[in-house]
Measured scan of single mutants.
Amino acid sequence: FIDQHRAALIARVTNVEWLLDALYGKVLTDEQYQAVRAEPTNPSKMRKLFSFTPAWNWTCKDLLLQALRESQSYLVEDLER
């Protein structure tokens, strides 16, 4: 899901800070967390977050999807259609 809908997630996720907090310490290191937060816009934050995903396994991507479902369920539901 995460890889399949990358472009839509970059464009449409609005609550990136919540995602970062949910992933911090589980998937994201402090350095990665700070790097994403330093980006000026939500799309650039999501691009930076996605720059780390090639090194993630399915469990990490599932944690991101779970966080998306909790914070932006309407968006996930729309993309699952």
Results as ranks from 00 to 15, higher is better:
Asp3Arg: 06
Leu79Met: 04
Asn42Gly: 09
Ala38Glu: 12
Pro43Ile: 06
Ala35Leu: 11
Asp3Ile: 03
Arg47Gln: 13
Arg37Trp: 09
Asp62Ser: 12
Thr41Cys: 10
Trp58Tyr: 15
Glu31Leu: 07
Leu23His: 04
Asn42Met: 07
Ala7Trp: 09
Ala7Gln: 14
Leu65Ala: 13
Leu64Cys: 07
Lys45Ser: 10
Phe1Ser: 08
Thr59Gln: 15
Lys48Glu: 00
Val27Pro: 06
Thr59Val: 12
Ser44Glu: 14
Trp58Glu: 15
Gln32Trp: 01
Arg12Glu: 10
Leu65Thr: 09
Asn57Asp: 15
Ala7His: 12
Ile10Tyr: 06
Ala67Gln: 04
Ala11Ser: 04
Ser73Glu: 11
Val36Ser: 09
Lys45Phe: 03
Val16Pro: 09
Cys60Lys: 14
Tyr33Asn: 08
Leu49Glu: 00
Asp21Ala: 07
Ala7Cys: 11
Phe1Leu: 02
Thr29Asn: 09
Met46Cys: 00
Ser51Trp: 02
Val36Arg: 02
Ala22Ile: 15
Leu75Ser: 04
Met46Gly: 00
Ala22Leu: 12
Glu80Gly: 10
Trp18Tyr: 15
Glu31Arg: 11
Ile2Thr: 11
Lys45Glu: 02
Ala8Ser: 13
Ile10Pro: 00
Asn15Glu: 12
Phe52Thr: 00
Cys60Val: 07
Trp58Gly: 15
Arg37Cys: 11
Ser51Met: 10
Ala35Trp: 00
Glu17Pro: 04
Arg69Phe: 05
Glu39Ile: 01
His5Ala: 10
Gln4Asp: 08
Glu70Arg: 09
Ala67His: 03
Ala55Thr: 13
Asp62Ile: 06
Asp78Met: 11
Asp62Met: 10
Asp21Tyr: 02
Phe50Asp: 00
Ala7Lys: 13
Trp56Ser: 02
Ala22His: 12
Asn57Cys: 10
Arg47Met: 12
Gln32Ile: 03
Glu80Arg: 07
Val76His: 00
Phe50Ala: 03
Tyr74Ile: 13
Leu64Thr: 07
Leu20Thr: 13
Leu9Lys: 00
Leu28Lys: 02
Glu31Asp: 12
His5Gln: 09
Tyr24Val: 13
Phe52His: 05
Lys26Arg: 12
Lys26Trp: 07
Leu9Phe: 03
His5Ser: 04
His5Asn: 12
Gln4Val: 12
Gln66His: 04
Leu64Arg: 03
Pro54Phe: 14
Leu63Tyr: 14
Glu70Ile: 07
Ser51Pro: 03
Glu70Phe: 08
Ala55Tyr: 13
Arg69Ala: 06
Asp21Trp: 07
Glu70Ala: 11
Leu65Lys: 09
Phe52Arg: 02
Asp62Lys: 13
Asp78Val: 08
Cys60Trp: 11
Pro43Trp: 10
Val27Gln: 05
Ala7Ser: 14
Gln66Phe: 04
Leu19Phe: 03
Ala8Glu: 15
Ala22Pro: 00
Glu80Thr: 12
Leu68Pro: 06
Cys60Asn: 13
Lys45Pro: 02
Glu17Thr: 10
Trp18His: 14
Trp58Thr: 15
Phe50Thr: 01
Ala38Asn: 10
Arg6Pro: 04
Val13Lys: 01
Asp30Met: 10
Val36Tyr: 00
Gln66Cys: 07
Glu77Leu: 08
Ala7Asn: 14
Ser51Gly: 06
Glu70Pro: 06
Asn15Thr: 07
